[in-house]
Every structure is written in C-alpha cells, then in structure tokens.
C-alpha cells in the first residue's frame, strides 16, 4: 500500500535536504567569494588597520578600523550594562520565583525578545537620543552610549533565558541539601548557584555579544553613523549599519561594493573568533 508513497517521500526528503544544504553552502561561499575579490585590491591588514573610510576616493581610503572599533565599543557597552541586570534577574527567577508567576515572567521576558529591532531603534531615537540632547545637553544625542544602552535592552532576554535555564537546574540539585543545613536562600544563591553557573553566564555573554555585533536597524538609528574613532558620547559607525546604509549606493561589482562584503566577512570572522574563544574557555573551565 504505502510502498510507492514511501519511496517518493524518502526521495523527496533527500532531495530537499540536498537543496537546502547546497543553498546554505552556496550562500556562505558566495559571501566569502565576493569579499575575497576586495582583498586582491586592498590587502587584508591594510583593510582592517586603516582608519579612513571614504568610498568616493581611491581604494586606499576603504579601511574599517574605526568601524570595527565602533562595533566592538557599542557591543561591549551593551554587555557591561546588560550582564549584571540579566544575571541578577536570572538568579532571582531561579531562586525566588515559583510556578505560575515564573511562567508569566518568562513570558514577559520573551516579549522583550520578540520586539522587532526597528521598534527598538524608534524608541531609542525618540526617548534615549532626545533625553541625551535635552536633559544632558549634549549637542548630539546620537552616540555610542545610546547604541549601547539600546542594545543592552535588546540582549537582556537572551542573557536572562540562557542563565536562568542552568541556574534553575543547579538550584533544583542543591536546594534540598542546602535547606537541610538551614542555610538561607540568598546564601545558597550567592555561594553555590552563582559560581556554579559561571559557564552559562559566559555562554550568555558570548551569545549576547554575537547578537549585539550583528544588530543592524536599532543601532543604525541611534549612533549617528560617522566612521570616526568612537568615543562614549560621540558618534560612531558599526559594520552592519555601514552595510545597510551604503549598499544601496554601491554599484554591484564596484570596489565599494566588494568592500562592503569584505566588512561583512570581517564581522562574521570576529563572531567566529569570539565563539572559538568561548569554546576554549569552556573547555578550560571544565578541566579545572
């Protein structure tokens, strides 16, 4: 009965799988290839160590150190702001909140994760940037700090959910024996749960860093997009916003176009390096 159908279905699954893998490989190779073209004109080192970005001038003026620094700066500000808040909330959730309420709060946090980045950018522009300008009296509110704060809000849900999961597990493991000793809950959280979950905190940090560095719209709307050396209260540029802003102007096949691909590749490699570092850190922590 099912013989023919079986065979067709199996073949279909195989063909579709091959299609998807080929597509993915193709996408990855495509990005790689379009970037490599650029490195024939401008050496890699030059590209990532030069400080000027001006697509209207000669090829020498296409270099992205400032932009790399901007990307890192904004993301690091975000992590520094979000990590304590995220870890604190995760601990609280794991140790003090039970049952229904926990489900509700996790739902609320997921809501944060579901808000599109344009909406974040929109709020950032209208609230954060305006606040900097009117209340703090800065000449321009568009700044690394604005981008960092905004990104911090955006990565919070990722930090909380990654940390919370393992903290809850550890809590469940240790709570009975600790309660038997009559130790207070906050002591348990502080002395056991927090140190025991350092691995997931690290993982959450890297995950959040990846998110932050790849984020486009929200950041683009609040950082001012100037490829200058980043300062906390000054404008800057990140790689994703660079690509988003300039791709429309760059003619396909031009050096400018390839330079944008190349910066995309640099971004991806940076993410890869961060993930590798995490991998080795994890290993070392495991060995200890």
């Amino acid at each position: 009965m099912y013989r023919v159908f079986d065979r067709v279905f199996t073949q279909l699954v195989k063909i579709l799988t091959i299609c998807s893998l080929l597509t993915l490989v193709f996408v990855i190779i495509f990005i790689f290839k379009e970037s490599v073209v650029f490195f024939k004109a401008v050496p890699v080192l030059r590209f990532i160590s030069g400080r000027s970005w001006n697509p209207l001038l000669a090829a020498d003026n296409l270099s992205i150190l400032n932009i790399i620094l901007g990307t890192l700066y904004v993301s690091l500000v975000a992590i520094v702001l979000a990590l304590p808040i995220g870890v604190g909330s995760a601990l609280l959730l794991a140790g003090y909140v039970k049952g229904q309420l926990r489900v509700v709060i996790r739902g609320i946090i997921d809501v944060l994760a579901g808000i599109p980045s344009v909406v974040y950018g929109f709020i950032g522009l209208l609230v954060l940037v305006k606040f900097f300008e009117t209340t703090l009296g800065l000449s321009s509110g568009e700044s690394v700090l604005a981008g960092g704060i905004l990104l911090a809000v955006m990565v919070l849900p990722y930090i909380i959910s990654t940390c919370h999961e393992s903290m809850e597990k550890i809590y469940r493991e240790h709570a009975p024996s600790s309660q038997a000793l009559g130790v207070s809950r906050s002591y348990l959280l502080r002395k056991i749960i927090l140190p025991e979950s350092r691995r997931s905190i690290l993982a959450a940090t890297v995950l959040a860093l990846g998110r932050a560095m790849g984020e486009t719209m929200a950041v683009m709307m609040v950082i001012g997009n100037a490829p200058i050396p980043p300062r906390l209260f000054g404008k800057c540029q990140t790689i994703p916003s660079l690509i988003a802003l300039e791709m429309g102007m760059a003619e396909v096949g031009s050096l400018h176009y390839h330079a944008l691909f190349a910066s995309g590749l640099v971004l991806m490699l940076m993410l890869l390096v961060i993930n590798l570092i995490l991998y080795f850190l994890k290993k070392n922590i495991l060995l200890q």
Partner: peptide
C-alpha cells in the same frame, strides 16, 4: 551565525 544584514547583502547581490 551570519548576521541578518549580511544575509540581506547576499539577497541583494544574488
């Protein structure tokens, strides 16, 4: 791991 803007870049070119 590919950031969404780079996916967009691919879509645009290809």
């Amino acid at each position: 791991g590919v950031p969404s803007i780079v996916v967009g870049l691919f879509g645009y070119t290809f």
